Deep mutational scan, measured.
Amino acid sequence: CHSECLGNCSQPDDPTKCVACRNFYLDGRCVETCPPPYYHFQDWRCVNFSFCQDLHHKCKNSRRQGCHQYVIHNNKCIPECPSGYTMNSSNLLCTPCLGPCPKVCHLLEGEKTIDSVTSAQELRGCTVINGSLIINIRGGNNLAAELEANLGLIEEISGYLKIRRSYALVSLSFFRKLRLIRGETLEIGNYSFYALDNQNLRQLWDWSKHNLTITQGKLFFHYNPKLCLSEIHKMEEVSGTKGRQERNDIALKTNGDQASCENELLKFSYIRTSFDKILLRWEPYWPPDFRDLLGFMLFYKEAPYQNVTEFDGQDACGSNSWTVVDIDPPLRSNDPKSQNHPGWLMRGLKPWTQYAIFVKTLVTFSDERRTYGAKSDIIYVQTDATNPSVPLDPISVSNSSSQIILKWKPPSDPNGNITHYLVFWERQAEDSELFELDYCLKGLKLPSRTWSPPFESEDSQKHNQSEYEDSAGECCSCPKTDSQILKELEESSFRKTFEDYLHNVVFVPRKT
Results as ranks from 00 to 15, higher is better:
residue 103 K to R: 12
residue 103 K to W: 13
residue 107 L to R: 07
residue 107 L to I: 05
residue 108 L to A: 13
residue 110 G to S: 13
residue 110 G to Y: 13
residue 110 G to C: 02
residue 114 I to A: 02
residue 116 S to Q: 02
residue 116 S to P: 01
residue 118 T to M: 05
residue 119 S to E: 08
residue 119 S to C: 15
residue 120 A to Q: 05
residue 120 A to I: 02
residue 121 Q to L: 09
residue 121 Q to C: 10
residue 122 E to P: 08
residue 123 L to W: 04
residue 124 R to H: 15
residue 125 G to V: 07
residue 125 G to W: 07
residue 125 G to H: 12
residue 126 C to V: 02
residue 126 C to A: 01
residue 127 T to R: 08
residue 129 I to K: 00
residue 129 I to S: 01
residue 130 N to L: 13
residue 130 N to T: 07
residue 131 G to S: 03
residue 131 G to A: 07
residue 131 G to P: 00
residue 132 S to L: 01
residue 132 S to Y: 00
residue 133 L to Q: 00
residue 133 L to H: 00
residue 134 I to S: 10
residue 134 I to K: 02
residue 135 I to A: 03
residue 135 I to H: 00
residue 137 I to L: 15
residue 138 R to Q: 14
residue 139 G to C: 04
residue 140 G to T: 04
residue 140 G to A: 15
residue 141 N to K: 08
residue 141 N to L: 10
residue 144 A to S: 15
residue 145 A to L: 05
residue 145 A to M: 12
residue 146 E to L: 02
residue 148 E to R: 13
residue 148 E to S: 10
residue 151 L to Q: 00
residue 153 L to H: 04
residue 153 L to C: 13
residue 153 L to Q: 12
residue 153 L to P: 12
residue 155 E to D: 07
residue 156 E to Q: 04
residue 158 S to T: 09
residue 158 S to H: 03
residue 158 S to G: 06
residue 158 S to E: 07
residue 159 G to A: 14
residue 159 G to D: 00
residue 160 Y to H: 15
residue 161 L to F: 04
residue 161 L to E: 00
residue 162 K to C: 13
residue 163 I to P: 00
residue 166 S to I: 12
residue 167 Y to A: 14
residue 167 Y to S: 02
residue 167 Y to I: 14
residue 168 A to K: 01
residue 169 L to R: 00
residue 169 L to N: 01
residue 170 V to S: 10
residue 170 V to E: 10
residue 170 V to I: 12
residue 171 S to K: 05
residue 172 L to M: 09
residue 172 L to E: 00
residue 174 F to Q: 02
residue 175 F to L: 09
residue 178 L to M: 09
residue 178 L to S: 01
residue 179 R to S: 09
residue 179 R to N: 11
residue 180 L to D: 10
residue 180 L to A: 13
residue 180 L to P: 00
residue 185 T to N: 07
residue 185 T to V: 11
residue 187 E to N: 07
residue 189 G to A: 07
residue 189 G to Q: 01
residue 189 G to P: 08
residue 190 N to P: 04
residue 191 Y to I: 14
residue 191 Y to T: 12
residue 191 Y to D: 10
residue 191 Y to K: 07
residue 192 S to D: 01
residue 192 S to R: 00
residue 193 F to D: 01
residue 193 F to C: 07
residue 194 Y to Q: 08
residue 194 Y to R: 08
residue 194 Y to P: 01
residue 195 A to I: 10
residue 198 N to T: 01
residue 198 N to A: 11
residue 199 Q to Y: 07
residue 201 L to Q: 01
residue 204 L to C: 07
residue 204 L to H: 01
residue 205 W to P: 01
residue 206 D to Q: 09
residue 206 D to I: 04
residue 207 W to G: 10
residue 207 W to D: 11
residue 209 K to P: 11
residue 211 N to S: 09
residue 212 L to M: 15
residue 212 L to Q: 05
residue 212 L to S: 02
residue 212 L to F: 11
residue 212 L to N: 01
residue 213 T to C: 07
residue 213 T to Y: 05
residue 214 I to T: 11
residue 214 I to K: 01
residue 214 I to E: 00
residue 216 Q to L: 12
residue 216 Q to H: 10
residue 216 Q to S: 05
residue 217 G to T: 00
residue 217 G to R: 14
residue 217 G to C: 07
residue 218 K to V: 15
residue 219 L to S: 09
residue 219 L to I: 06
residue 219 L to E: 03
residue 220 F to S: 03
residue 220 F to M: 04
residue 221 F to C: 09
residue 222 H to R: 11
residue 222 H to E: 14
residue 224 N to M: 04
residue 225 P to S: 04
residue 226 K to D: 05
residue 226 K to H: 02
residue 226 K to Y: 04
residue 227 L to N: 01
residue 228 C to Q: 07
residue 229 L to I: 00
residue 229 L to T: 03
residue 229 L to Q: 14
residue 230 S to T: 04
residue 231 E to T: 09
residue 233 H to T: 13
residue 234 K to C: 10
residue 234 K to L: 04
residue 235 M to G: 08
residue 235 M to A: 15
residue 236 E to A: 13
residue 236 E to M: 04
residue 237 E to N: 14
residue 238 V to T: 07
residue 239 S to P: 04
residue 239 S to Q: 11
residue 239 S to K: 09
residue 240 G to W: 15
residue 241 T to P: 10
residue 242 K to T: 04
residue 242 K to A: 07
residue 244 R to E: 05
residue 244 R to M: 13
residue 244 R to G: 11
residue 245 Q to D: 03
residue 245 Q to P: 08
residue 246 E to C: 03
residue 246 E to H: 05
residue 247 R to Q: 11
residue 249 D to P: 10
residue 250 I to S: 09
residue 251 A to D: 02
residue 251 A to L: 07
residue 252 L to V: 12
residue 252 L to C: 13
residue 252 L to M: 13
residue 253 K to T: 08
residue 253 K to W: 15
residue 255 N to V: 04
residue 255 N to Y: 07
residue 256 G to M: 11
residue 256 G to P: 06
residue 256 G to D: 05
residue 257 D to I: 03
residue 257 D to M: 02
residue 257 D to S: 03
residue 258 Q to C: 14
residue 258 Q to D: 15
residue 258 Q to G: 02
residue 260 S to M: 06
residue 260 S to L: 12
residue 260 S to D: 14
residue 260 S to R: 11
residue 261 C to Q: 02
residue 263 N to E: 14
residue 263 N to D: 14
residue 265 L to K: 09
residue 265 L to E: 14
residue 265 L to R: 13
residue 268 F to I: 06
residue 269 S to L: 12
residue 271 I to Y: 06
residue 271 I to A: 04
residue 272 R to L: 03
residue 273 T to Q: 05
residue 273 T to G: 07
residue 273 T to D: 02
residue 273 T to E: 04
residue 273 T to F: 07
residue 274 S to T: 11
residue 276 D to R: 01
residue 276 D to A: 13
residue 277 K to R: 15
residue 280 L to S: 04
residue 281 R to W: 01
residue 283 E to R: 14
residue 287 P to T: 09
residue 288 P to H: 11
residue 289 D to A: 10
residue 291 R to D: 09
residue 292 D to I: 06
residue 292 D to V: 03
residue 292 D to F: 14
residue 292 D to W: 13
residue 294 L to D: 04
residue 295 G to M: 14
residue 295 G to I: 11
residue 295 G to L: 11
residue 296 F to C: 11
residue 297 M to N: 15
residue 299 F to D: 01
residue 300 Y to D: 00
residue 300 Y to E: 01
residue 300 Y to S: 05
residue 301 K to T: 04
residue 301 K to M: 13
residue 301 K to Y: 04
residue 302 E to K: 10
residue 302 E to F: 14
residue 302 E to G: 14
residue 303 A to F: 04
residue 303 A to I: 08
residue 303 A to N: 07
residue 305 Y to P: 12
residue 305 Y to G: 12
residue 305 Y to C: 00
residue 306 Q to L: 07
residue 306 Q to E: 04
residue 307 N to K: 05
residue 307 N to R: 06
residue 309 T to H: 09
residue 311 F to W: 15
residue 313 G to Q: 11
residue 314 Q to K: 01
residue 314 Q to V: 05
residue 315 D to K: 03
residue 315 D to W: 01
residue 316 A to F: 08
residue 317 C to M: 04
residue 318 G to L: 15
residue 322 W to G: 06
residue 322 W to A: 09
residue 322 W to Q: 03
residue 323 T to W: 15
residue 324 V to R: 12
residue 324 V to L: 07
residue 324 V to Y: 14
residue 327 I to Y: 13
residue 327 I to R: 02
residue 329 P to V: 07
residue 331 L to M: 11
residue 333 S to N: 03
residue 333 S to P: 05
residue 333 S to L: 10
residue 336 P to M: 02
residue 339 Q to Y: 01
residue 340 N to S: 08
residue 341 H to N: 09
residue 341 H to F: 09
residue 342 P to Q: 06
residue 343 G to V: 11
residue 344 W to T: 10
residue 344 W to R: 10
residue 345 L to A: 02
residue 345 L to W: 06
residue 345 L to G: 05
residue 345 L to C: 04
residue 346 M to E: 06
residue 346 M to L: 10
residue 347 R to I: 06
residue 347 R to S: 06
residue 348 G to F: 14
residue 348 G to H: 13
residue 349 L to T: 03
residue 349 L to H: 00
residue 351 P to S: 07
residue 352 W to D: 13
residue 353 T to N: 01
residue 354 Q to S: 03
residue 354 Q to R: 12
residue 356 A to E: 04
residue 358 F to K: 14
residue 358 F to M: 10
residue 358 F to G: 05
residue 358 F to Q: 14
residue 360 K to Y: 01
residue 361 T to G: 11
residue 362 L to T: 02
residue 365 F to A: 00
residue 368 E to P: 06
residue 368 E to K: 13
residue 368 E to M: 10
residue 369 R to A: 04
residue 369 R to E: 08
residue 369 R to N: 13
residue 370 R to S: 04
residue 371 T to I: 15
residue 371 T to K: 04
residue 373 G to W: 15
residue 374 A to Y: 14
residue 377 D to F: 02
residue 378 I to E: 01
residue 378 I to S: 01
residue 379 I to K: 10
residue 381 V to M: 13
residue 381 V to C: 02
residue 381 V to L: 15
residue 382 Q to A: 11
residue 383 T to K: 00
residue 383 T to C: 09
residue 386 T to R: 11
residue 387 N to T: 05
residue 389 S to Q: 08
residue 390 V to M: 07
residue 390 V to T: 05
residue 390 V to D: 14
residue 391 P to A: 01
residue 391 P to N: 01
residue 391 P to L: 09
residue 394 P to H: 05
residue 395 I to G: 05
residue 396 S to D: 15
residue 397 V to P: 14
residue 397 V to H: 15
residue 398 S to L: 11
residue 399 N to F: 11
residue 400 S to F: 02
residue 400 S to W: 04
residue 402 S to P: 03
residue 402 S to V: 15
residue 402 S to F: 11
residue 406 L to T: 05
residue 406 L to V: 12
residue 409 K to C: 11
residue 410 P to S: 14
residue 410 P to K: 15
residue 411 P to H: 04
